[in-house]
C-alpha cells in the first residue's frame, strides 16, 4: 500500500444530539499505514466520531469516507475492512476464547477451513496460544483486551480503530497492548487509529496525533510539529503532556 494513500477522510463532519454539538465540523485525513493517536478529555466527542466512522451512528452533517466507502450507505463494506475494539468490550463469558473468535469469524463470513489457522495465528500474535480453550469468564482484564485485539485481527482488517485500548490496565499489560499495536502496524501495514489518555504511550508509538476538545479538533499533526508551533521548543525538551495541557487550557 502506498504511503500517501488516504484511508480515512472526513469533511466537516458534524453530529448533534438535541442542543448539544457532540462533533463540530471535523475534517481529518488518515493515511494508510500510519498510527494516529486520538486525544481529548472525556466527553470530547472521540467515541461519537469513531461510531460515525463505522456507520454505527448517522452524522448530522458532513462527509465521511473510510477505505473508499461511505459508512452511512455502505456500512457492510466498511465493517468488512475495519476492525473496531469498543471501549467496553464484551465477550460471551460462557464460551471459550476460541469459540468467541470462531463466532466472529463466522459473522465475517470467513470460510471454516481458513478460519481455523487464522484463529490460531491471532491467538499466537496476541500471546494467548495456550488459553484458547479457557472460558473467557476466567480471563483477566489484560487478557480480555488482548483477546479483543485477536478478534479484530480475525477479519484481516485494513484499518483498526481502538477506543481506549489501555483503559484500566496495569502498566505491564498496558505496555503489552501498546507494543502489540505498534507491531501490527509496522509488520502488517495495518492503519491504526486509537484513542487514549496515556499520553506517554501515545507519544511513543503515534506517527501523528489529533487533539479533540469539546467536539472540535484543535490540533492535528506530528508531535514535533505541534510542539514547535505551540511551545516553540525542539524535540526531547518537552512531553506530550505539556503540549496537551497547553491546548486544553487554551480551549
Amino acid at each position: 500500500m502506498a504511503e500517501d494513500k488516504i484511508i480515512l477522510e472526513t469533511q466537516n463532519l458534524t453530529k448533534r444530539y438535541g442542543q448539544i454539538l457532540a462533533v463540530d465540523g471535523l475534517s481529518l485525513q488518515v493515511q494508510a499505514g500510519e498510527i494516529f493517536g486520538f486525544l481529548g478529555p472525556n466527553g470530547a466527542g472521540k467515541t461519537t466520531t469513531i461510531l460515525m466512522l463505522l456507520g454505527l451512528t448517522q452524522p448530522t452533517g458532513g462527509r465521511v469516507r473510510v477505505c473508499g466507502f461511505d459508512p452511512t450507505r455502505e456500512a457492510i463494506q466498511v465493517k468488512r475492512r475495519v476492525g473496531y475494539l469498543p471501549e467496553h468490550l464484551g465477550f460471551y463469558e460462557d464460551m471459550t476464547a476460541r469459540e468467541n473468535l470462531r463466532y466472529v469469524s463466522r459473522l465475517n463470513g470467513i470460510p471454516e477451513e481458513t478460519a481455523g489457522p487464522r484463529i490460531e495465528e491471532a491467538l499466537q500474535t496476541v500471546g494467548l496460544p495456550d488459553d484458547g480453550d479457557r472460558r473467557v469468564g476466567e480471563f483477566s482484564r489484560g487478557m480480555r483486551q488482548r483477546l479483543g485485539i485477536a478478534e479484530v485481527l480475525i477479519k484481516d482488517p485494513q484499518l483498526v480503530i481502538l477506543d481506549e485500548p489501555t483503559l484500566g490496565l496495569d502498566p505491564d499489560a498496558s505496555n503489552r497492548i501498546i507494543g502489540l499495536i505498534e507491531e501490527l502496524s509496522r509488520a502488517k501495514g495495518i492503519t491504526v487509529l486509537f484513542s487514549s489518555h496515556h499520553l506517554h504511550q501515545v507519544q511513543k508509538i503515534s506517527d501523528r496525533i489529533g487533539i479533540m476538545i469539546r467536539g472540535r479538533m484543535v490540533a492535528v499533526g506530528t508531535i514535533d510539529q505541534l510542539a514547535q508551533e505551540k511551545l516553540g521548543i525542539g524535540k526531547e525538551t518537552y512531553t506530550l503532556e505539556e503540549l496537551y495541557l497547553k491546548y486544553f487550557q487554551e480551549a
Binding site: L56, R80, P86, H88, G90, V104, L107, K155
Partner: peptide
Amino acid sequence: RERSTGTLSKLVSQPIY
C-alpha cells in the same frame, strides 16, 4: 443481556446487517 455485557456493540460492528 448482550447490551449489558458489551457484546452487542461487537455484533453491530461486524459486517452483517
